[in-house]
């Protein structure tokens, strides 16, 4: 059984079709890079998976349970259960600016799962250490660099123990140096067998860390395969053009 199963996904904004027909699945342990030109619908697709956008048609199943089936949404409780299995990291971090790093991590856990304060604090420290931020647990977000913020955001998502992590261009707001530290954390997660779906422009990450690549173009997945296949022998001219431009 696949962790995520997507079929015939359609989505438009005010009459403009952003996703025309998206089909793919994510299996346990997969690290999937979603690449493609701007406006291809990569972020929209990711946001549909975690219910930040409503689809117009198609099916999304999470661990066998439908979130939306043939365009009809499951009851709210089931939708929450499905999305609860995923964690999400945004391009602009979206940390809570009024809370310390510690509270950023513990607040959702305590409020959503009712975890006790001590347990939440211990888990926060452990998780922060994983992303190399253990020493900044009492810092306020405004004092952190972009890379540090993104690492905290990853830790915050991990706190809720998701089965799948979604990354929406996690390094696009960062300069190259900071990008490296965030990619390092993601690479470590992959090594720990976290299932990940990453929308990215970082071709090196796609090439070296991902085990599969989805190339999206014009609202659909044009080509899918291992990094060797996509980078080495692209089937479509569009894929080749995109990669050619990007590698230059």
């Amino acid at each position: 059984m696949s962790l995520i199963f997507v079929k015939n996904l359609r989505k438009g904004f005010q009459g403009v079709e952003v996703l025309t027909d998206v089909n793919f699945q994510v299996d346990k342990g997969d690290v999937i890079a979603v690449i493609g030109p701007s406006g291809a619908g990569k972020s929209t697709m990711l946001r549909c998976l975690i219910d930040l956008e409503k689809v117009d048609g198609g099916t999304i199943e999470v661990e066998g349970e439908p979130l939306v089936k043939d365009g009809i949404y499951a009851p709210p409780a089931q939708v929450r259960r499905a999305t609860g299995k995923m964690g999400m990291v945004f391009q602009n971090f979206h940390l809570f600016p009024h809370l310390s790093v510690r509270r950023n991590l513990t607040m959702p856990l305590m409020k959503v799962k009712g975890t006790g304060k001590e347990q939440a604090n211990a888990l926060a420290l452990e998780t922060l250490k994983k992303v190399g931020m253990g020493d900044r647990i009492d810092a306020m977000p405004s004092t952190l660099s972009g890379g540090q913020k993104q690492r905290v955001a990853i830790a915050r998502a991990l706190m809720l123990n998701p089965d799948i992590m979604l990354f929406d261009e996690p390094t696009s707001a960062l300069d190259p140096m900071l990008t490296l530290e965030v990619l390092g954390v993601m690479q470590k997660l992959a090594a720990d067998h976290m299932t990940m779906l990453v929308v990215t422009h970082e071709m090196s990450f796609a090439k070296e860390v991902a085990n599969r690549i989805l190339f999206m173009c014009d609202g659909t997945i044009l080509e899918e395969g291992t990094p060797e296949q996509i980078f080495g022998h692209p089937k479509h001219q569009r894929t080749a053009d995109f990669l050619g431009n990007n590698i230059k």
Binding site: I50, D51, L52, R80, T83, G84, M86, G87, M88, F90, N92, H94, L95, F96, P108, K111, V112, R156, A157, L160
Partner: peptide, 17 residues
């Protein structure tokens, strides 16, 4: 920021929280 609402949603916080 709209992102704050989205962050809350994906973390599972309900409207009141």
């Amino acid at each position: 920021d709209k992102g704050q609402y989205e962050a809350c949603q994906v973390l599972g916080l309900n409207r009141v929280q």
